[in-house]
Design a protein around this nucleic acid. Structure first.
Lengths: 119, 119
DNA sequence: CAGCTATGTTGACACATATCGAATCAACGG
DNA sequence: CCGTTGATTCGATATGTGTCAACATAGCTG
């Protein structure tokens, strides 16, 4: 028992977690956290889905708009779930369709971690 | 024999390949290319190794300086090879030790791809 | 309510990858 | 030239991951 911070999935790595890669060597904890964000974008299908949402009008898109990436519908759903778990996307059901939206803070954190190279 | 451009490892995806994720949906080709870069940083051990090199004095470090990440020496070598194949690091042998150095252009490309979020 | 469409979930499988031990290669020193 | 130390490669294995078919769920519409 003890504390309730055990569940890893409830912490989508949104908070400003880690310093730029050039500042000092990351600790094991920081590396696990940061790697999860990069890993989420480390798959071509996920990257295309994310890009489709990010570039869509209004910063959001329903699954029906973005599901044409060459894989089956369950696979699309699977990848969207991964992106959501990584904190990169949020979803909301409005009637028949489910809309996905980009979470800017996590992208900002990734840009921050890349440090001076990203500038 | 024929031409010498057969080896795939000679194309480390350094050139400015892709637009920001928010500009338009990535094509399949672009996504494969971009995902490879993010994937390389999507492992905690690789991230720690890369951070150790990036934050080391002079922007370079020998394997002996950074191999204390909790995995065996062959595993360290394996991950460094992956980072090199992704174009994130370059290596050079000087006497007994091998020195690794950050390739800034790839990091810049990643920052560019993150788009306005990284700023 | 019945049927239809849009998403999500489950189970299974093929493939990739992270890891280690052992062997090998490279440089240095006696 | 041989032994030592650092670094990579090889072989094997366990785990992770992407994928799809089948099924389940949610909401609209008649």
């Amino acid at each position: 028992m003890s504390n309730a911070k055990v569940l890893p999935v409830l912490e989508p790595a949104v908070e400003p977690c880690c310093p730029p890669l050039t500042e000092r060597p990351l600790t094991a904890q920081e590396a696990i956290r940061t790697a999860a964000m990069f890993k989420a974008l480390g798959d071509p299908v996920r990257l295309r889905l994310f890009s489709a949402v990010a570039s869509h009008e209004g910063g959001e898109a329903c699954v029906c708009d973005i599901s044409d990436v060459g894989v089956s519908q369950p696979t699309v759903s699977h990848h969207l779930k991964k992106l959501k778990e990584a904190g990169l996307l949020t979803s909301e059901r409005r009637g028949t369709w489910v809309y996905y939206r980009v979470e800017p803070s996590v992208l900002a954190a990734m840009g921050h971690i890349l440090g001076r190279y990203a500038a």
